[in-house]
């Protein structure tokens, strides 16, 4: 509210509090560190530009992630217009097949999960990220995505089931290689 009233020094506090959650959100969505940083910067530029549009009602984090989501959508559309595609660094995610034992260790598991998450449809991935990683409540996610709380819960459960299937599929792929 103070930023809205022209106290720009308070924007520094907001940056310190939210730059990492926003970066995590973008990174999990696009898997590109540089793009994620650009998008975080873009969110705070939008915050400055549209600070009057924040009504002061409801959670600030909800409003912030709405801005972040729009920034990501805009970036994605721009990339598509330019003919670029968001490349996922699969090399980094690939399980080290030279060490079959590693498939079962913790690090390999994490890589596998990340890969599965990246293969999830974007709308489902978005809900999993906001709920599981950023700790937003279903009601808040529903506000951001402009839908009902019940619909978000159903999507979340189905996303988890799909993720389980993807993990199992990737495990099978690895064991065959």
């Amino acid at each position: 509210m103070k930023v809205k009233n022209g106290d720009l020094d308070k924007l520094g506090l907001l940056f310190e509090r939210y730059n990492r959650p926003l970066y995590r959100f973008f990174y999990r969505m696009c898997k590109d560190g540089q793009v994620s940083e650009d998008l975080v910067q873009s969110v705070f530029e939008r915050l400055l530009k549209y600070r009057e549009s924040y009504s002061g009602n409801g959670q600030f984090s909800t409003w912030l992630f709405s801005v972040a989501r729009n920034a990501h959508i805009d970036h994605y559309r721009k990339e598509q217009r330019n003919g670029d595609s968001i490349e996922i660094d699969e090399e980094r995610l690939e399980v080290d097949s030279d060490d079959p034992v590693a498939v079962h260790n913790k690090e390999a598991k994490q890589h596998l999960l990340e890969l599965a998450l990246d293969r999830l449809d974007e709308d489902k991935r978005e809900i999993v990220i906001l709920s599981r990683f950023e700790g937003l409540k279903y009601k808040e996610i529903a506000e951001i995505l402009d839908t009902t709380e019940g619909a978000i819960k159903v999507k979340m459960f189905r996303a988890m089931k799909e993720l389980r299937d993807l993990v199992n599929h990737l495990k099978d792929e690895c064991s065959y290689e």
Binding site: F15, N19, R20, Y23, R24, Y27, G33, S36, E37, V40, Q41, F44, K106, K109, Q110, L113, E114, L117, V128, R132, F133, M160, L163, R164, V167
Partner: peptide, 21 residues
């Protein structure tokens, strides 16, 4: 699976982001 997702390491932005902001 939901529990395991919590074990995925989180990424941190570089210092450049703070400087730019």
């Amino acid at each position: 699976l939901y529990e395991e997702l919590g074990a995925i390491p989180t990424q941190k932005p570089s210092e450049k982001l703070s400087n730019r902001f």
